[in-house]
Simulated scan of single mutants.
Amino acid sequence: MQKIIHKAENRGHVDFGWLKSAHSFSFGQYHDPKKINFGALRVLNDDFVEAGNGFGRHPHDNMEIVSIPLEGVLEHQDSMGTSKAIETGDVQIMSAGTGVQHSEFNGSKENPVKFLQIWIVPNERQLTPSYDQKSYLALDRKNKFATIVSPKKEDTDAVLIQQDAYFNLADLEEHKTINYQLHGEGKGVYVFLLEGEINIAGETLKRRDAIGVYEIDEIAIEATQDAKILLIEVPMF
């Protein structure tokens, strides 16, 4: 087993007034040569955007971009003609492929929006851009993982990603333990603790801490407090 620890307080932090963001990996003005990526996981930004503000239209290419609102509503528009509200309980993916432009704004004039934006390196370059969005609110996440992003079309509850990667959410009750089985060799898991406290791989994680673990087949997670967990499985290349 190999592991890396990313404590919440050691993330890169930026504050532009209307935008407050914590970066788990090097991004924009924040650069740490030890935090470039975890396998195919390239970016995990924990964003807070004030009411009525957002990111104007800007380009992306050759990246799988996943957005998960934690509180509030995001308004998304892109050059593919997509215009969508992404609400808390939704997961959105934009496969940028050969190139796409998009904008993201807080959908409220009164309340902030809090969301995760996560970038995954695709398994192939210059793909045709695409968009997918689904609600995961009906999925059972009590003391079990629910897959919300998957490379398999048969996983109809999940949005489709152009990489052998899986995003999973779980609401784990105090003193409960769950196990996660990886999908084959050469994979790793990045566990980002949204809320609560857990024990994993001999480490204790608190709110917004993260751990990357690889060279394993399975991982056990125990909640020492009620916990909300995001687990991302990616190829380690």
Rank of each mutant, 00 (worst) to 15 (best):
D164V: 03
I216D: 04
T156C: 03
G28Q: 07
D226Q: 12
D132Y: 14
E50M: 12
K187N: 09
S24L: 06
L205C: 11
V100G: 02
V213D: 00
Y136R: 02
K152M: 05
E64V: 02
S79T: 15
K35R: 15
V191H: 01
G52N: 06
F27Y: 13
F192M: 11
G54A: 03
D217W: 10
M1T: 15
A201M: 04
S21L: 03
D217R: 14
Q225L: 07
K144N: 13
G188S: 07
L127C: 02
L205M: 06
D157W: 00
R42D: 08
L44R: 00
S95C: 15
A51M: 05
A170P: 04
K153Y: 04
K3Y: 07
S130T: 14
N106G: 12
N106H: 03
F38E: 00
N45S: 09
Q29N: 13
G202M: 10
H58I: 10
E218T: 10
I200L: 10
M1L: 13
F105L: 15
Q225D: 09
F16E: 14
V234K: 01
E185Y: 09
I120R: 04
V191L: 04
I221S: 11
D47V: 03
L194F: 08
E174P: 02
A8L: 11
A138Q: 12
Q92P: 03
Y166F: 03
A138K: 12
W18Y: 10
L70T: 11
H60S: 07
H23M: 10
I120M: 07
A227R: 03
L169W: 04
S26L: 08
G184L: 15
V213N: 06
G52P: 06
H60P: 05
K34D: 10
Y214N: 11
K144H: 09
T224Y: 02
E203I: 13
Q126W: 12
L70F: 13
Y180M: 00
D217A: 10
V189N: 06
T82K: 09
N199R: 14
D209Q: 05
H76G: 01
K20Q: 09
E174K: 07
A220S: 15
M80R: 10
G28F: 12
M236E: 02
L172S: 01
N179K: 13
V234M: 14
P151Y: 12
K142W: 13
I36S: 05
E124Q: 14
I219W: 03
